[in-house]
Simulated scan of single mutants.
Amino acid sequence: MQQVKAVIARSKAAPVELVTINVPDPGPGEAVVAVQACGVCHTDLHYREGGINDEFPFLLGHEAAGVVEAVGEGVTSVAPGDFVVLNWRAVCGQCRACNRGQAQYCFATHNATQKMTLEDGTELSPALGIGAFAEKTLVAAGQCTKVDPSARPAAVGLLGCGVMAGIGAAINTGAVTRGKSVAVIGCGGVGAAAIAGSALAGASPIIAVDIDDSKLEKATTLGATHTVNSSQEDPVEAIKRISAATYPGAEGADVVIEAVGRPETWKQAFYARDLAGTVVLVGVPTPDMQVPEIPLIDVFGRGGALKSSWYGDCLPSRDFPMLVDLYQQGRLDLDAFVTEEIGIDGVEAAFEKMHHGNVLRSVVVL
């Protein structure tokens, strides 16, 4: 066991604390990772606010990259010294989804068996089974994905959650390709990544929708061909107009990605897609939200697909190395998502900036 500095949420809505925690030596199937960088994600804030569950205290942080320090018995997928991006989808290899060759839908993903603790022995609940606002963390070995060791940790670590969720929502869930039009409603970190993923896939037009002009401006640098400020014009009509200008007769975009997670914006996405088009919900709703009232005949009559995208339907072992390689080639600008680099003592201030919506990602660098 070793002791390291880490950021915890001790109770609901309380400011986070920088404390000393105990990290066990890795047991069978586990690995200890020295964290080099970890993004500050909205999900961490949800944990602190009690929006995920009430299993306090939480060890926050989950969008991380680092170096494997030690592995436990039976681990062959990674070794000490490997540079890895951490993920929260360690697939089991044995469930129905895995057995039918769809490990990205694994029904039995897993985390480390042992618990990290406070100095007094209180067990910590690591965010998404990772807990990477820490100098070192204990994870299941399957949560470590080896990538190019020359890549910048602050950038590629973001593939661990938000950026992968957005890129995957476009490419994996929405099946975006050349010849398809895309609209993305909500241009925060995940929505911006969906735009980048759509551009990577060769889609056009790519329509960014938000109420914040600064986010729309950023979206254009990531590949958006058109922007719509939905506080100033009807986004549904705007998406239809822009889509039809490229593809005469289109009644909307081929794929509409909802990256807000609210009933009203999901309804906009439903009506902004073309006939036989696809809606992808990647924004995370709260438990109290309900599907908006839509006539069932509209669901039937428009055809197409209504999908949700969980972690961008990614398979880390397949997707992370590929996307890191594209980043290294200059074809995927992951650096654009890093708004600022901060110390491990800056997480609470980063949460405050998140409330104001003026960052894509603050990244803790250790």
Rank of each mutant, 00 (worst) to 15 (best):
V32I: 07
K215S: 07
C95H: 07
A112T: 09
T220E: 13
G283N: 03
R361Q: 04
I344W: 09
A193Q: 07
A169P: 11
V156Y: 10
I171W: 08
D325W: 00
D212K: 14
G162T: 11
V85N: 11
V68G: 08
G131K: 08
G223M: 10
R96E: 13
P295C: 01
K215E: 09
D274R: 06
A224D: 04
F300C: 07
V363Q: 04
S309P: 15
M289W: 10
D325A: 10
R152P: 15
A37C: 02
A245D: 11
Q268G: 00
G157K: 03
K115Q: 10
M289Y: 13
G51E: 11
V228H: 08
P15A: 06
A140S: 10
V363P: 15
I206D: 02
G51S: 07
R273C: 02
K353G: 14
V284I: 15
A6L: 03
F270K: 09
P321E: 03
G357W: 04
S362L: 05
E63R: 12
G346R: 04
L281G: 15
T43P: 05
L323K: 05
C98T: 04
N229R: 06
P149E: 14
C38S: 13
K267F: 12
D212Q: 12
S204G: 09
I130E: 08
L281H: 00
A151K: 14
E217A: 14
V184S: 04
L275H: 13
L332D: 04
Q94G: 13
A244V: 03
G261Y: 08
I207Y: 13
S150Q: 14
G81I: 05
Q143R: 13
T220I: 01
C38P: 14
Q94L: 10
I52L: 05
G131P: 13
L86F: 06
A224F: 07
G343H: 09
G186I: 12
G129I: 09
V85H: 02
D234F: 03
A203H: 04
G179C: 06
D44F: 05
K240W: 12
V163W: 03
P24L: 01
E251P: 00
P321G: 02
P153M: 00
A108Q: 13
T20D: 15
Q102P: 11
W310Q: 11
